[in-house]
Design a binder for these strands. Sequence first.
DNA 1: CACGCTTAGCGTCATGTTGACGATAATAGA
DNA 2: TCTATTATCGTCAACATGACGCTAAGCGTG
Lengths: 234, 234
Amino acid sequence: MTLSVVSVTVDLVLLTIREGKLQVLLIRRGIPPFEGAWALPGGFVLPGEDLGDAAARELSEETGVRPAHLEQLGTYGSPERDPRGRVITVAYLALLPDLPAPVAGTDAADASWRPVPFTGLAFDHDRILADGVERARSKLEYTPLATAFCPPSFTIAELRAVYETVWRTRLDPRNFHRKVTGAAGFVETTGESVIRDRGRPAQLFRRGSATLLHPALLRPGLGSAQGGRSATDC
Amino acid sequence: MTLSVVSVTVDLVLLTIREGKLQVLLIRRGIPPFEGAWALPGGFVLPGEDLGDAAARELSEETGVRPAHLEQLGTYGSPERDPRGRVITVAYLALLPDLPAPVAGTDAADASWRPVPFTGLAFDHDRILADGVERARSKLEYTPLATAFCPPSFTIAELRAVYETVWRTRLDPRNFHRKVTGAAGFVETTGESVIRDRGRPAQLFRRGSATLLHPALLRPGLGSAQGGRSATDC
DNA sequence: CACGCTTAGCGTCATGTTGACGATAATAGA
DNA sequence: TCTATTATCGTCAACATGACGCTAAGCGTG
């Protein structure tokens, strides 16, 4: 049996909502291949390092934040994906609130948030980014992960803005309010209230303890069609 | 930056339903490490071979069947998972009908179907198997993948037996019939009918064209609890 | 300070989905 | 023919959903 020796990297799809748009953290590559192109942040897995630890380390290096949520997205290993040789990458997905410090101490050439969709990335990162966005869209349906985009306390309207931004849809504020407050463990009230724009003050909420939404918040529109085939299908 | 050179394998979680039980294909290891222990089938990725291709090749080698469905399950890369050194594995999940030929030309010591749950596997395969079973359970909810366990044509009762076996639940035959025939594109009638056990003859169906079930068939019982944290979470 | 603008949050209603379960149909075997 | 057994259709109450009316509670302005 021929033993294939390869290099392994982790790449991060870091999503946030800034200026009302879904954005992804990209770095501009300072070295070949794809010098000057935008790419997902990432790096080689260190010897003796677990994959999830490598992803958390990269996340910390890039943003300085402790991840509210970091999940494995998929592994990409096409033989031609890296001109330097056989490099497979394990992609991770994280959802972050709008960070106060734009991008903390980063070792990359330069890093910045870019609105998605964004194409022309190095390697197969277009595909990885697309898979990450689709994963995020679908996870908002049946998990309370939308709160990962929010600060510790937030209003229902702000949570709704997360859904509207990620799903690129408009949701009825009254029905949304009913469903969010009705889903067990999604959010819990803090007792405080604030005035965000104009109008009546809104209650502040924090994340609840549920890990799964019941009932789920299904995306409107797509009756039974869609079914975006993901990279993990064969 | 220290470049970590590792070996990459693919491992397969092949699930089927035999004798009314959910079973997984295991091989008995003929060489160290874990000589004599049961393990998931798998092998090294060949140079120049894509990950999905490697999984499909292993599947073909083990079972001789063309996969009805083969999806990436996750990647496992703990530094201690293989005593021989740094080996990370990309796990794939396939759901198969009860194969006529038990296990076709296999190169492994010996291979056989074992009922799940089954523990004591080599490496971290206990974990991978558990993740695969949980993935299969959850995919039955919102995809028509249960038909992958069935032969080309099947009765509603046989499809229900798939759900009952995988979910370890009992389902109401009348409600199940209504939901399956009501979900657009799940199954389509062939016009034929057969007598399986005793009783009234049942219509035969084949898979429909849908890739997503609408509405979904949710597992009964688990109100909002569960939330099995998967290996891909961090 | 009254008025209108704006957003929050509650209520209503028709429709669709779900679980529980009754009723009937169609076969084999006694 | 009768009975056991399974398939399939129907009914009903409880709940979820989308569309949308209505009131509450702030602000700014004249």
